[in-house]
Simulated assay, not measured.
Amino acid sequence: MKPWFIVFRKELKDLSRDRRTMTNILVLGALLGPVLAMGLLMLTMKMVADEAEKTIRLPVQGAQYAPVLLDYLAYSRIQVDEPVEDPAGAVRSQEVEAVLEIPPDFGERLRQGRPAELTLISDHSRTRARIARSRIESAIQGYSSAIGSLRLSLRGIDPVISQVITLHDQDLSPDGGAAALLSFLPYLLIIGIMQAAMVVAADLTAGERERQSLEPLMANPVAPEQIMAGKLATNVLVSLAVLLLSLGGFALGSRMVDIGEAGLNFSLWSIPLLLTFLAPLAFMFAALMSFVGAFARTVKEAQTYLSLLVLAALMPSMLQMVLQSRVQGSQLLLPIWSHNYLINEVLRGESLAWTEWLLPSAGALFAGVAFAFLAARLYRKPGFIF
């Protein structure tokens, strides 16, 4: 039996005995992401559907100056309420979603054929307020278009003549909050793998130092590279287990939530596809964490180093989540950056070229081999034990 495999079995047995650590890794680390993501999706979809159907209560300042407009708003399920003393304060305190201000000269401007001005006060940073504002703006634009068409018709002019260009907007993005979830899902998958690799690496290096079990292990007539390879294989296996549980959690959540309406395509075939695609990334994280964890002398020190490393490594994923830029060419060789983008494409149901599958995996494998080589060199140094 190969020495590295003996170390691999020994480390797995040690980890299985530490039930608290394994519970944190396999249950909290793997399933927290799917539960959080599906919960957010359910909440977002329900909120968008409710806000789109419910009657909006809109306080109006100067309602007496535009009675016809208010009747039109009521037809659009916008209920006109009494004016408030402090419109801006009421919006800031979330007492109301929006306030409409009608100036005294509104009717006079309409009679003269001049543009009539309205002021809609709302907080664009709040999701509910944005939905309400969009519906109010659409209703006011509809009223404005109707008045303009009537003016042209009264003058014997076909209203169509004012429509120089007709633009049809075909939106291919997912509905509601699913677009934000699409950019959030890869982040949850990647951070789950990283956290698993971080915990295992800290336990297999600094943890063994504190338990004083590392020195007897290194005293065996076995090459340090074999010991490192056994520990690395343990880390990779646990990381893949966390990834598989996370993908299974997302697949189960997709059966509980109708994600098809949100534009997500997460089928059972996505599990082996993403598992194969992300396996090299799990190897890279395990090698990276093993290399950095070898520096630490205590578990607390290892956790400090590895936590900072997790934040630094997740920066590409967070940038891709915000920018949503296309990754192509040599950028596909950049791990995390390319993986984040391509996970999104898979969930959208897009077809990918073979280079888009191979190049990110090749980049992750190359980085993983480099970190594994550096970790093996650390295991050979006397300072690793003494």
Rank of each mutant, 00 (worst) to 15 (best):
Q64P: 02
P67F: 05
E51I: 01
T21A: 15
T119R: 13
G33W: 13
A49I: 05
K54D: 04
P115V: 09
P103W: 01
Y143A: 11
T119E: 12
V60Q: 07
V96E: 04
L32F: 15
L31V: 10
A63W: 01
T44S: 15
G113S: 04
T119P: 01
K54W: 04
Y143M: 09
G62P: 07
G89W: 04
T127H: 12
R20I: 13
V60H: 04
A30R: 05
P59Q: 07
L31E: 11
L32T: 11
I78A: 07
G107N: 12
Y72W: 15
I140G: 10
A146R: 12
A146K: 07
L100P: 02
I78V: 08
D50E: 10
R92G: 01
A63V: 02
A116K: 02
P87I: 05
D86V: 01
R126G: 03
I136R: 01
V91S: 00
F106N: 08
F106C: 12
S125C: 03
R19T: 11
A63T: 04
Y72F: 15
V91P: 00
T44V: 07
N24Y: 13
M42T: 14
R92F: 08
Y72Q: 14
R114K: 15
S122H: 14
P103H: 04
Q94A: 07
D86K: 03
A116C: 05
E108W: 13
A30C: 11
L70A: 12
P104E: 13
